[in-house]
């Protein structure tokens, strides 16, 4: 039973990984990675790592993938880029060479445990209780360091992704210009009504006998 599950999960994980690399549309690559992560979580469950599997699904397949999807939707896939001529050959070659080297290293390692099914299982292995106790006692320092790293990453992401000139509200200074004012604007003569001003002509064109312009009727016609 566990062998069947293992092969299903392993084939899912590997095909998801191949999909990430080969699919041209980044959005489909993200979906393939989500599939790969869920399959990998199944592999973790088979290895009795319940907490890691849960964290994988919640943090990765949940949060990080949503972040990816948002960025792909924001940036857009763009036109699919063909890889460079040299790297298109060199990349897969390098990957195959690395795989061969890893296989040789693994088969030649002589570790006896590789052939076995692992240490005898004792109940509670890999549960949140055990992992949490380890994190808060033996591995307290890496735990705190990880929290500081997360904080720094959040601050760094905000600094990187914000607009260059501070907050969006004060990005551009308000545009100011001085309109040329009609003569006698703001003088005592205007206040006393001694001289007709340009504003009077604008507000009451018929009183001045001026030809009616086809300018729209000013909405603000009241006096003081």
């Amino acid at each position: 039973m566990s062998a069947v599950l293992f092969f299903i999960a392993a084939i899912g994980a590997i095909s998801g990984a191949i999909g990430v690399v080969t699919l041209r549309n980044p959005f489909y690559s993200v979906l393939a990675l989500a599939f790969h992560l869920v399959s990998l979580a199944a592999l973790f469950l088979l290895l009795r790592a319940e907490f890691v599997a849960a964290g994988q699904v919640v943090v990765y397949a949940g949060a990080v993938m949503v972040l990816y999807v948002f960025v792909v939707a924001y940036v857009g896939g763009g036109e699919p880029l063909a890889s460079g001529a040299v790297l298109r050959v060199l990349g897969p070659l390098f990957a195959v060479a690395l795989a061969v080297e890893l296989s040789i290293a693994m088969l030649g390692s002589g570790l006896k445990g590789i052939k076995g099914r692992g240490a005898p299982f004792h109940p509670g292995f890999g549960t949140p209780a055990h992992i949490g106790r380890l994190l808060l006692t033996k591995y307290l320092f890496p735990f705190e360091a990880a929290s500081i790293l997360l904080l720094l990453a959040a601050v760094g992401a905000v600094v990187l992704a914000r607009r260059r000139r501070g907050l969006p509200g004060d990005e551009e200074p308000p545009l100011r210009f001085r309109a040329t004012e009609p003569d006698y604007t703001g003088t005592m003569a205007e206040a006393a009504g001694v001289r007709p001003t340009a504003y009077d002509e604008l507000l009451h064109p018929e009183a001045q006998g001026a030809p009616a312009t086809d300018a729209p009727e000013p909405t603000h016609t009241g006096g003081w």
Binding site: V20, V21, S83, L90, G91
Partner: peptide, 10 residues
């Protein structure tokens, strides 16, 4: 290895 190949070729 699949990931490494992808980093190099994409």
């Amino acid at each position: 290895c699949i990931g490494a190949g992808g980093v190099m070729s994409r």
